[in-house]
C-alpha cells in the first residue's frame, strides 16, 4: 500500500510538474509572446473581428 501512497503523492506532484514542462514548451515556441495574434485566432476572413454573430433573438428580420 505504501507504494500506492507514493504513487499518489507522485501523481499530485506530476500534474503541476507536467504543467510546468508544458509551460516551458510554450514559452520556447513563443506562444507567450504573441498575445495580440493569439487573441485573434478565433477570427478569420469568414468571421472577422467586428462582426457579431448569432444575433437571432428579438429581431424581426431574422425570423423565418
Amino acid at each position: 500500500m505504501n507504494v500506492l501512497a507514493i504513487l499518489m503523492i507522485g501523481g499530485v506532484l506530476a500534474v503541476p510538474g507536467v504543467a510546468l514542462v508544458a509551460l516551458r514548451w510554450a514559452s520556447h515556441r513563443g506562444e507567450l509572446n504573441l498575445p495580440e495574434r493569439a487573441a485573434l485566432l478565433p477570427f478569420d476572413e469568414e468571421e472577422p473581428v467586428g462582426r457579431a454573430t448569432d444575433q437571432i433573438l428579438n429581431r424581426q428580420s431574422a425570423e423565418s
Binding site: 509572446n33 504573441l34 498575445p35 495580440e36 495574434r37 485573434l40 477570427f43 472577422p48 473581428v49 467586428g50 462582426r51 457579431a52 444575433q55 429581431r59 428580420s61
Partner: peptide
C-alpha cells in the same frame, strides 16, 4: 439594422488589429 457601430469603422478596426506590424 447594424448593432450600433458603423460597419466600416469595425472593418477598419479589424484590419488594423490584424495588420499592426509591431506586436
Amino acid at each position: 439594422l447594424d448593432s450600433g457601430e458603423a460597419t466600416d469603422v469595425r472593418d477598419l478596426h479589424a484590419a488594423i488589429l490584424r495588420e499592426r506590424p509591431d506586436p
